[in-house]
């Protein structure tokens, strides 16, 4: 069984957010929800400035607090044998316990049905004319393993694009990154690119003190100034 992980090369990352926009596109993520996002920080004092940009997404933790907090049976948030922390939207009761437990803030809750703009008025007419369920550019691939669009009173988050991974494709953020900053693969395979990158580079994870053992790793630094 694989142990999936992602390595983000901060030096290669150009801070453009193509990953995050493409993620919405691939996963039918509504406005205001971010399966993929970023933290931007500017530090120093003029003119000695450093900019930082850290891509964020579900860390697919080895010890996922979201799973621990999930009260349903079976768990709505649960870790699979390959390390992907998956969400079962059918079982989810929208209690938001996972959202509160996640130290990374990468779980989002739908207060209302997403894609409201396409559910009424002229937007609905466009969807009806064009097809595509829910909204005109709806990606049916997402529904291969999960709800194509998550409904009101449910949470949602990154699944490492499991629907693509199980079909032999990389997660869409990896493919869409124009800077080739992201590598996805199997930590159990010592010859995999992710294993090699981690072996050859100093790396860090977000909030190691939480003891979650994230599976999203970062190497090198974003701002290249001394």
């Amino acid at each position: 069984m694989a142990k999936y992980a992602m390595v983000i090369n901060q030096e290669r990352c150009m801070g453009c957010a193509a990953c995050s926009i493409a993620c919405k596109n691939e996963n039918n993520v509504g406005d205001g929800k971010f399966w993929s996002h970023y933290i931007m920080e500017t530090t120093g004092s003029f003119p000695d400035i450093r900019q930082n940009y850290i891509s964020t997404l579900c860390n697919h933790c080895e010890n996922p607090p979201c799973e621990a907090a999930c009260p349903t049976t079976p768990k709505s948030m649960y870790q699979k044998a390959d390390g992907i922390v998956m969400h079962d939207e059918e079982v989810c009761i929208g209690c938001r316990a996972c959202e509160n437990a996640c130290p990374y803030g990468v779980i989002y809750y739908n207060e209302e049905e997403p894609f409201q703009r396409y559910r009424e008025g002229e937007g609905a007419e466009v969807t009806e004319r064009v097809g595509g369920e829910h909204f005109p550019y709806y990606n049916p691939d997402r529904a291969a393993t999960y709800a194509g669009v998550r409904r009101a009173n449910k949470v949602e988050k990154c699944t490492f694009c499991d629907h693509r991974v199980y079909n032999g494709e990389d997660p869409y953020c990896v493919v869409a990154c124009p800077a080739v900053a992201r590598t996805f693969g199997d930590l159990d395979d010592p010859d995999s690119e992710v294993s090699r990158l981690l072996a050859e580079n100093d790396h860090f994870v977000l909030k190691p003190e939480e003891g979650t053992n994230p599976k999203v790793y970062y190497i090198k630094k974003y701002d290249v100034k001394e």
């Binding site: 079976p74 649960y78 699979k80 059918e90 049916p140 291969a144 393993t145 709800a147 194509g148 079909n167």
Partner: peptide, 27 residues
């Protein structure tokens, strides 16, 4: 839910939890 209405489906056992059966649709 809108689980892959248009696709040919196949079933894979991809979960360690034997009670949870997951359908993996094709793209």
């Amino acid at each position: 839910y809108d689980q892959g209405r248009r696709r040919r489906m196949e079933t894979l056992q991809a979960d360690e939890d034997p009670t949870r059966t997951e359908e993996i649709g094709e793209l």
